[in-house]
């Protein structure tokens, strides 16, 4: 995107593209911070989660499929590992290795998105909608926004994969483009670690958690 010679020295020694991506991610921290705060504030206010269409109080923990979410979290973490390998390969000019690793990242990203689509459908069928509770609103908007970030990342990596055949990714500029995409990907991954912890895992602590008492198994 930079129209000025990418190789020209900058005052800080950091490339324009890398610096603007760091700034975007700083801004995105506030973005996700606001969404996560909204979720946590309401979660503290309404400990029982939501009421379904029949008027039954439902506990989130019974809705969550923590095994599936742990699996998709693990997949997303491993995609970051492959992304690091792809960036490293591009820096060394090993295009074939870059293609292999970036395909892996794309595949893992798609698996994560597939798990999220499954989870949304599952929750919706169990009666959690965006309209029937505050929990539904905050949960779907927060995790959906994260899913949108992942989808944009996947789209971006697919473009980079094709560019690796057209010659656009040659040299320093190409390695930089991949590295910037990598920064974005790692950030989206880190945000998911936080979401997984504060949206899913904490539900299993405290009196209503599976290790506490008082959880009606409905």
């Amino acid at each position: 995107m930079s129209d000025h010679a990418a190789a020209a020295p900058t005052s800080t020694g950091i490339d324009h593209k890398k610096l603007i991506m760091w700034l975007f991610l700083a801004s995105d921290c506030m973005f996700f911070g606001t969404l996560i705060s909204t979720h946590l504030l309401y979660r503290k206010l309404y400990p029982t989660g939501f009421t379904d269409a029949e008027g039954h109080e439902r506990f989130i923990q019974n809705l969550f499929d923590i095994e599936l979410t742990s699996f998709s979290t693990f997949i997303l973490l491993m995609s970051s590992f492959l992304m690091a390998l792809a960036v490293s390969a591009m820096h060394k000019g090993q295009v074939a290795s870059f293609r292999r690793n970036v395909l892996g990242v794309i595949a893992f990203g798609l698996v994560f998105l597939g798990c999220q689509v499954y989870e949304f459908t599952h929750f919706w069928q169990k009666g959690l909608t965006i309209q029937n509770s505050v929990f539904g609103s905050t949960f779907y908007v927060l995790t959906g926004t994260h899913g949108t970030h992942v989808a944009i990342g996947v789209l971006w990596l697919i473009l980079l994969y094709f560019y690796s055949f057209t010659g656009r990714l040659r040299g320093h500029g190409g390695a930089l483009d991949v590295e910037v995409a990598g920064l974005y990907w790692h950030f989206v991954d880190i945000v998911w670690i936080i979401i997984f912890t504060v949206v899913y895992l904490v539900e299993y602590l405290g009196p209503n958690g599976i290790w506490g008492a008082g959880l009606p198994l409905s």
């Binding site: 909204t38 309401y42 206010l45 309404y46 965006i130 309209q131 029937n132 509770s133 505050v134 539904g136 609103s137 905050t138 908007v141």
Partner: peptide
């Protein structure tokens, strides 16, 4: 959605 809808909390 119910972010600011007082009826639903």
């Amino acid at each position: 959605a119910n972010f600011f809808n007082p009826t639903n909390g």
